[in-house]
Design a protein around this nucleic acid. Structure first.
Length: 309
DNA sequence: AAGACGAAAGTGGTTGA
DNA sequence: TCAACAACTTTCGTCTT
């Protein structure tokens, strides 16, 4: 399931405490938080494993289960020549017409796919995603094409939608903005196409869990693992207290990180956090104020943090 | 001077009649 | 289908460190 670790020790601080997150295929250093490798999934016969892991993880599979069935219609090639002579002139004409059509349709599909698959390769490499994600994106896109979902839509836009959908399926925290940036597709269109392909291919995704963002933002901010852990705690309690619903997960993650950084005297400015979290300072502010208001133990901890400064 | 704060007005998405 | 609504953004002036 997981490939051999390339690293035995953290190259940054040479600590041996490595910690991996199976869900995301990430390995991080426990003492400095450096993400060492995020492409650790070895896939091949792993679908079953995902399936049986736990009920809440079943969404990981989404569409693939039905994928192996041959596509409807388009996969069927139109007859051989052998019994052509039995047909009337009219039927022969029809036969040729149909075959011509099929050739047109399938070459159209093929050239579309060629274009799309190379675009997918590019996007995956820019985003630094693991191979299995590329496979999945390609597979789902192929299915979308075969079901005729791309007709009347721009290839690139549908690709962007599929990319985002797959990221969501695998709980890989990338924002709409990031997908929008690398694909050059307007953010709104990405969202629209995400919904479009999800709906038509029965891909189900749950709302994003803020926890998924915390690790990534923390690492980007080079925060101490302790601080990250604190932020995770905060998010967890907040979720339990039901003060997170309706709020953007990015904002929650950002607010929690801001508080955690204050508690652990590793002060980051709201602007810094806002930047990596892809929200505005105002949102960071509102989010962290909301958290403090509802979780009053945080106040004391922040005071303590200040005192020990 | 930089960071934090909050008010006001604008935007896009969701919801419910 | 439209209007009301909440969350988020943008912008900007003021207070705090």
């Amino acid at each position: 399931m997981i490939k051999d670790l390339q690293y035995k020790k953290c190259p940054e601080c040479t600590a041996e405490a490595l910690h991996w997150n199976k869900e995301k295929g990430e390995v991080a250093c426990k003492s400095c938080g450096l993400v060492l490798d995020d492409k650790l999934f070895d896939f091949g016969q792993e679908w079953r494993e995902f399936d049986s892991e736990s009920s809440e993880n079943r969404r990981r599979t989404g569409a693939p289960l039905t994928y192996t069935q041959e596509d409807r219609g388009l996969g069927t090639t139109i007859g051989t020549k052998s019994d052509l002579h039995k047909l009337s002139k009219k039927d022969k004409d029809k036969f040729y017409r149909l075959r011509l059509w099929q050739r047109r349709v399938s070459t159209a599909i093929e050239s579309n796919l060629r274009l799309a698959l190379s675009e997918i390769k590019r996007i995956v490499s820019v985003l630094g995603l693991p191979n299995y994600v590329e496979e999945e994106i390609s597979r789902i896109y192929t299915e979308a094409v075969q079901r005729g979902l791309v007709r009347g839509h721009s290839t690139e836009a549908v690709v962007a939608g599929v990319v985002y959908a797959v990221l969501r399926m695998y709980d890989i925290p990338r924002t709409l903005n990031e997908v929008s940036d690398v694909t050059g597709i307007d953010k709104k269109k990405v969202a629209k196409n995400f919904k479009y392909v999800s709906r038509n291919l029965n891909i189900r995704t749950l709302p994003i869990d803020p926890m998924n963002y915390v690790a990534r933002f923390a690492s980007e901010l080079k925060l101490d693992p302790q601080t990250q852990t604190k932020a995770l705690d905060i998010v967890q309690v907040a979720t339990k207290e039901e003060i997170t619903s309706g709020r953007s997960p990015k904002g929650i993650a950002a607010g929690a990180l801001y508080i955690a950084s204050k508690i652990h005297n590793e002060r980051k400015t709201q602007a810094e956090i806002a930047k990596v979290a892809d929200v505005t300072e105002v949102t960071v502010r509102n989010s962290y104020k909301e958290l403090i208001e509802n979780l009053n133990f945080l106040n004391d901890e922040m005071e303590k943090g200040k005192a020990s400064a």
